[in-house]
């Protein structure tokens, strides 16, 4: 801890901090608003992550250095990534409709939100909090040491119990997402025998992608007549409606390619002829 920071924290915030607050605070509010107003979950998550990083900066400005780092590492780094992971699982491109379905819900929400916010702000103003003591004395034995001392003495019980809570949460998550297999998995042989018996799609499924230009898994392969083959894309993507149909485009491209090659060939022929 530098002596400068100590002094800054001891008294009312400096001008530098004020500038920092107004700039970053505005961005944080915008980020929060974007979080709740973005149609796609992945955008919301990114906006939230931004807001959280700004909050981490504010923690640092308020002298909570340890917490600021933890905020970046754990919250933004781990928890938000967990969010993104689930978003990916659910479908990254799925956009929500922001149209309200419950009658009067939005109005009530806005009303409650406004009322609540006004009341909170009025309460804070009412409390007349002007006295800032700063953390100088609390950090006298070192910031992290001070935290550690509190955690392992005064809050040791809470600390232990949060440990238990984390374990429980981990077990709970496993239990919730775990699916018990109730029957034996079919072997390769059984699967192939069943395919023969049922007479469906004996050879391997066609591969997606067309002519190496669209080899993404969400683009169906084209049949010889130019129509897309539904079989060539994954069932999951089909269910999500995340298939890009590029058959017409591909044919156009093909045509253009043929033409250009013909032109080049012709030019080449002329060149050869000129030779």
């Amino acid at each position: 801890m530098s002596v400068l920071t100590e002094n800054v924290l001891a008294e009312a915030a400096s001008t530098g901090e004020a500038v920092q607050f107004w700039v970053l605070g505005t961005i944080a509010v915008i980020g929060a608003l974007c979080t709740i107003l973005m149609k796609k979950a992945v955008h919301s998550a990114l906006c939230l992550a931004g807001t959280m990083i700004i909050l981490a900066v504010f923690y640092l400005a308020n002298g909570a250095y340890f917490l600021g780092i933890v905020q970046v590492v754990v919250y933004t780094g781990a928890i938000m990534m967990l969010f993104l992971f689930v978003v990916m699982l659910v479908g990254v491109t799925a956009a929500d409709s922001l149209k309200e379905t419950l009658k009067g819900q939005r109005w009530l929400a806005v009303l409650c939100g406004l009322g609540f916010g006004i009341l909170l702000i009025a309460g804070i103003r009412h409390a007349q909090l002007n006295q800032f003591n700063g953390l100088g004395r609390a950090n006298s034995a070192g910031h992290v040491e001070g935290l550690a001392q509190l955690i392992f003495t005064k809050y040791v019980f809470a600390f232990e119990i949060t440990g238990a809570l984390l374990i429980t949460a981990a077990v709970g998550a496993m239990v919730l997402t775990h699916r018990e297999r109730t029957e034996r998995a079919a072997t390769q042989r059984e699967l192939s025998e069943r395919r023969v018996r049922e007479g469906v799609q004996l050879p391997p499924l066609p591969a997606p992608g067309v002519y190496a230009r669209h080899n993404a898994v969400d683009v169906p392969g084209l049949l010889p007549d130019g129509s897309p083959s539904e079989l060539s894309v994954s069932k999951t993507l089909r269910a999500r409606g995340q298939i890009r149909d590029v058959s017409g485009e591909a044919l156009e491209d093909l045509k253009a390619l043929e033409q250009s090659s013909a032109e080049r060939l012709g030019r080449d022929a002329r060149k050869e002829a000129s030779k």
């Binding site: 924290l9 308020n62 002298g63 909570a64 340890f66 917490l67 933890v70 905020q71 754990v74 919250y75 781990a78 928890i79 967990l82 969010f83 689930v86 909090l129 006295q131 800032f132 003591n133 700063g134 953390l135 100088g136 004395r137 609390a138 950090n139 001070g146 935290l147 509190l150 955690i151 005064k154 809050y155 809470a158 600390f159 949060t162 809570l165 984390l166 429980t168 949460a169 981990a170 709970g172 998550a173 496993m174 919730l176 997402t177």
Partner: peptide, 28 residues
């Protein structure tokens, strides 16, 4: 910062831990 002690930070720390637990279960 206002009160000049570290208890608030400790509580925030615990909030983070609990939030982590909550997120794990909630996402599950």
């Amino acid at each position: 910062r206002m009160h000049g002690n570290l208890d608030g930070q400790i509580i925030a720390f615990f909030t983070m831990v609990v939030a982590a637990a909550e997120v794990v279960v909630g996402l599950a």
